Simulated assay, not measured.
Amino acid sequence: MALESPVSSREARIDLGAARRNIRALVSDDADVAVDVTGDGYGHGALRIGRVALEEGARVAVRDVRERERLTAAGLDSDVGIADDRARELASRVYGLGWGDAVMRCTAQVLAYKTVAAGEGVSYGYTWRAPVDTTLAFVPLGYADGIHRGASNVGRVWLEGRARLIAGRVAMDAHMLDLGEPLESRPPAGTLRAVVFGEAGHGHASAHEWAESIGASPLEVTSRIGTRVQRVWS
């Protein structure tokens, strides 16, 4: 199913308030905290996270001299250092990955539905076949957007109040969700958003939980979210 999807259909919402609370808690325990913003802040936006860190009394660090040059040229109000081992160890905590408040929420609009019959194969190599007649949802997030191929046939994405199985292999531009319900009961395409990871308190998998379910590290998961996914900072 080849569909063009607008950039706005893919979104990574970055909660700067959550990042601020996490950094503030770290600084309250130790005044000498360096926030590691390597790799564009592990996908969260290095400049914005860096500014929040400085406002909360933390230092900012990266792992590459060129990254440091870009950030200082962009106007950070303090020198950017090189991340030491402790800054790297704390990185999962300034981004809410297994500790504190979740910072990134990754979602996409459901663009289409497809009914498949029992036994029909889905995606490359037909590694998943429908156990019964079912409906699939087309979600425009694929491995080019950072959705790990390890999520194929095992990852679960939140949609309409339930965690839905990724059916078949994750493709470059999309993945499919098994809804297991009649097509007639679905809202129009484009009206629902599937949540890959977000806030655990809302029923979604957190980025930490999503990473564990697919055998990846949390920082890898957020860092992989690509540039086609629109960042929205709030």
Rank of each mutant, 00 (worst) to 15 (best):
H208K: 03
A25M: 06
Y95Q: 10
E55Q: 15
L16K: 07
G119Y: 04
A130F: 08
L183I: 11
A205G: 03
L177K: 02
L97P: 05
D77E: 13
E220H: 13
H204S: 12
R20S: 15
A91W: 09
V157Y: 01
D84K: 07
V65Y: 01
G96C: 06
L165D: 10
W210P: 02
G43L: 11
R156F: 00
W128F: 15
P182C: 12
G142I: 12
R24F: 00
A61M: 06
E89S: 14
Y143P: 02
L3Q: 08
L192V: 13
T191N: 04
D173N: 14
G198L: 06
P218W: 03
D79C: 01
A167Q: 10
E120W: 06
R13F: 03
V103L: 08
E89G: 11
L192G: 02
G190M: 06
A200P: 10
I225G: 07
I49D: 02
H204C: 10
P131S: 12
F197P: 05
G119V: 05
L165R: 15
R51K: 12
T134Q: 07
G57K: 04
Y42I: 01
V60W: 08
A87Q: 06
Y113N: 04
L90R: 13
A151I: 11
V229K: 09
V35G: 02
L159Q: 01
G75C: 08
G198D: 09
D84G: 15
R68A: 15
V80A: 10
R63V: 10
D145Q: 14
P6T: 10
A200H: 08
A87S: 14
V60H: 05
G43M: 11
A205F: 06
L219P: 09
V52R: 03
A19S: 13
I14W: 04
L76T: 10
V196P: 02
V154G: 06
V195Y: 02
D133E: 15
R70C: 00
R68E: 11
A174L: 12
L90E: 07
A151G: 15
V170Q: 13
S223H: 08
D178K: 00
H44D: 01
G198P: 07
